[in-house]
């Protein structure tokens, strides 16, 4: 989370859009900025399973980060035509990348909106999501702050997101039809990290007509990352609602 926010700050200074692709360790459930969560998860069971919690700066609902690729894009809020058009443009680029990898996927009609709730992100299909059939493969969320849009999201590789419901204290009736999609079911193989990165980058390059330059955080960015890390690891923020 902290790195994504640092990237958004850097875009505010430089105007240079950034794409980041990453994985999580240990596994973690990220909560939407405004979703209710306080007292709703079984903390002891989460600890026993080695699962952390963090609250995102972006909207949306809970995502289990394990066996997935997380992407983050930071871009000027008008560079791709405003929040909604940016959301659609990034999903079209991801869709192109997934199709290059061989995954048969599509984008849901963008006019369906969901309220923040404890219902996990991948359990319900919202407008603009990337799906395979009626099952969600990619879920994303956005923050618009001082001229910059940060959009990040999760592309499921394998597994079923079950900790997002199993760790809820409230009784949860699982329905097989709500099960998310995963890339390993859509392809004959599970791509390597390198293949995933190359496929997704190609999707962005083709759809948005951009060329990527690889970079790392500089010392100043690392300093800001440490500061933001303190915020995101503060239980007062994670369990604020």
């Amino acid at each position: 989370m902290a790195v994504d926010v640092v990237l958004a700050e850097t875009v505010r200074e430089t105007g240079q859009p950034v794409l980041r692709l990453y994985r999580w360790w240990p596994p973690c459930i990220s909560l939407g900025r405004n979703q209710p969560a306080k007292g709703q998860y079984d903390d002891a069971e989460a600890k026993r399973r080695g699962i952390d919690f963090v609250r995102r700066p972006t909207g949306g609902r809970a995502v289990y980060h394990h066996h997935e690729v997380t992407y983050a894009v930071a871009v000027g809020d008008r560079q791709l035509g405003g929040p909604r058009r940016t959301y659609e443009a990034i999903h079209r680029a991801l869709l192109a990348g997934l199709r290059l990898l061989g995954a048969s996927t599509e984008i849901v009609d963008p006019r369906v909106a969901l309220r923040p709730s404890t219902v996990p992100c991948f359990q319900e299909i919202d407008g603009g999501a990337i799906v395979a059939g009626r099952r969600k493969l990619v879920g994303s969320a956005q923050l618009r702050e001082r001229g910059v849009l940060l959009q990040h999201g999760s592309i499921l590789l394998t597994g079923d997101q079950s900790p997002t419901t199993e760790l809820l204290k409230v009784a949860w009736k699982s329905d097989e039809r709500d099960r998310p999609a995963a890339l390993d079911e859509l392809l004959d193989f599970l791509p390597t990290w390198g293949e995933l990165v190359n496929g997704l980058l190609s999707g962005f390059e083709r759809l948005l007509d951009v060329e990527f330059v690889q970079s790392r955080l500089d010392d100043a960015e690392k300093g800001r990352m440490m500061r933001h890390s303190r915020h995101f690891s503060d239980p007062g923020w994670t369990w604020r609602l």
């Binding site: 939407g32 900025r33 405004n34 700066p57 972006t58 909207g59 949306g60 609902r61 929040p83 909604r84 959301y87 963008p110 909106a113 969901l114 923040p116 919202d126 407008g127 603009g128 994303s140 969320a141 956005q142 923050l143 618009r144 702050e145 001082r146």
Partner: peptide
């Protein structure tokens, strides 16, 4: 200065 936030279709804006 930001006085609040608004969320729409998973997009939070200050």
């Amino acid at each position: 200065e930001a006085f609040g936030t608004i969320e729409a279709v998973k997009a939070v804006s200050e």
